[in-house]
Design a protein around this nucleic acid. Structure first.
Lengths: 210, 210
DNA sequence: GCAAAAGTGTTGAGATTACACCCATGC
DNA sequence: GCATGGGTGTAATCTCAACACTTTTGC
C-alpha cells in the first residue's frame, strides 16, 4: 500500500435513561481485538465521506435518519497499528428511544455506553469521545442540535432534560423556558401531553436554524 | 487506484497593506490549469497530515513557523476531476511583513490576494475560502489567534487594525482596549514604539491561551 | 503651535442570574 | 384532598455599545 487509507469513525450519541450514551462496537481483529471503539469503516473509492458514515451506521444499527456532522480528521500514521489510516471523525445524534442493537453473533457486538464512564477504547478513541462531547456541549448553547436528540414534538421539561444531561448540570426552569422561547428556538404546537399529572404543552423546533 | 487519495490544502492568511490576504498558487495541470487555488499536496504514506501541510508551505514559501489549524475535510468524489481525492483543509496564519514569494519559473506562480476579492478558484476552493474566513472571524472573538498575525510586540492600534481587517468593520477604540486588557489577552511590555507622533505603548500576548 | 496618533470614563440598554409560589391533573 | 410535575414574574447584577476630549510627540 503506497498511500494512506481513508476511514470514517462515528460517535453516535443518544439520550437514554437520563444519561448521554454513545454507541460502541467491539473490535474483532488486530491488536485492539476485544476492546471497544466507535463504529467506522473504510471509505471506498467514489463514495462521499458522509455517505460512508451514514451507510456504516445504517448497516450496524438500522438507523437511517440522523443528524450527522463532521468533527475532526486524525491522520497520525501510528494511530492504527495495521497501517496509516486517515480517519475522518463524525458525530451523530439519534432521538431516544433508540432501537435495541441486534445481538446477532454474525456481527460485532454493539453497546450503548454512558459517555462519562467509557472504558479504555481502541484506536485512541477516548480522545475522540472528549472532542465530540466538547463540540456537542458548545453547539447546544447556540444552535438547535438538540433537535437531533428529540422526537418532533416534546415538552419543555424534556428539552430541558436534554440540555442538563449534555451540560452535566442543573438549569433553572424559568430561565430556561424564557431563553428557548425568546430565542425562537421552539414554538408551541397547541397540543398537550397527558400523563399522571398536569398536562404539559407540546413544542416543536422552529423552522429556520440559526 | 482502488482507494481515495488523501491531500491537504492550506489557506494561508496574512495581513498586508490593511487587507486580509491569502496565498494562491497557479494550477499547472489538469482541467483547472491556469486557475488559481490554495496550495496543497498529496499526503505520503507515513506522514502526519499537519506535517504535510507545514512541509508544503515550507517548500513553496520558505515560511517555517506559522499557526496551523485544521478546518474541514472535503471528500466528495467528484470535486477533483482527476480522481477521488479526500482533501483535509487547514488554515494558517503568518505575521506581516511576509517575504515576497519567489518568482522562480521552475515553480508554480504564487500570489497574495485579497480574500474578499478572490477570482473563481480551481477545485471549488472558493467554498474553502469562505469557510476559513468564517472560522477566523469566529475564533478571533474568543481566542488569541491574532497572535499568528502579529510580531511578538505590537501596539494596541496594530492589534485593533488586525481585528478590524478580519471582521471587516470599525471597532470603538476605547471599548477595544478595555476588552483585550481585562480579558487578559495582552500585557504591556513597558516599552514604546517611537514614530512621527506620540509614542505608543508596546504589548505582547499573555502566556496562557484561553 | 499645529498636525496626527495615543490614551482615557461614564452612561444606558439589554441580557443573565437568582429565587418561590400557584395550577392542573390523576388517583 | 393530596401528590406530582407544569407553569409563571421580578429585582439585582453584569456585559456591551455608544460617545468626545486631552495628551504627547515630531516637525
Amino acid at each position: 500500500m503506497r498511500v494512506p487509507t481513508v476511514a470514517v469513525d462515528v460517535v453516535l450519541f443518544t439520550i437514554d435513561a437520563g444519561a448521554l450514551k454513545a454507541l460502541l462496537v467491539q473490535v474483532r481483529k488486530g491488536p485492539f481485538a476485544g476492546r471497544w471503539a466507535f463504529p467506522g469503516g473504510l471509505v471506498p473509492l467514489g463514495e462521499a465521506l458522509e455517505d460512508t458514515a451514514r451507510r456504516e451506521l445504517q448497516e450496524k444499527t438500522g438507523i437511517a435518519d440522523l443528524y450527522l456532522e463532521q468533527l475532526y480528521t486524525f491522520g497520525e500514521p501510528d494511530r492504527d497499528p495495521s497501517g496509516h489510516v486517515v480517519s475522518v471523525a463524525y458525530f451523530a445524534l439519534v432521538p431516544a428511544p433508540v432501537p435495541a442493537p441486534p445481538d446477532d453473533p454474525k456481527y460485532a457486538r454493539l453497546e450503548w455506553r454512558d459517555v462519562r464512564k467509557l472504558p479504555r477504547l481502541g484506536y485512541g478513541h477516548n480522545a475522540l469521545a472528549d472532542y465530540a462531547l466538547a463540540r456537542l456541549q458548545a453547539k447546544i448553547e447556540y444552535s438547535d442540535v438538540a433537535r437531533g436528540l428529540l422526537p418532533p414534538e416534546f415538552t419543555l421539561a424534556e428539552l430541558q432534560e436534554v440540555y442538563e444531561t449534555i451540560l452535566g448540570r442543573a438549569l433553572d426552569r424559568r430561565n430556561f423556558r424564557k431563553r428557548v422561547l425568546q430565542r425562537g428556538l421552539v414554538r408551541p404546537v397547541k397540543r398537550v401531553r397527558r400523563g399522571p399529572h398536569r398536562p404539559a404543552e407540546l413544542y416543536a423546533f422552529a423552522q429556520r436554524e440559526r
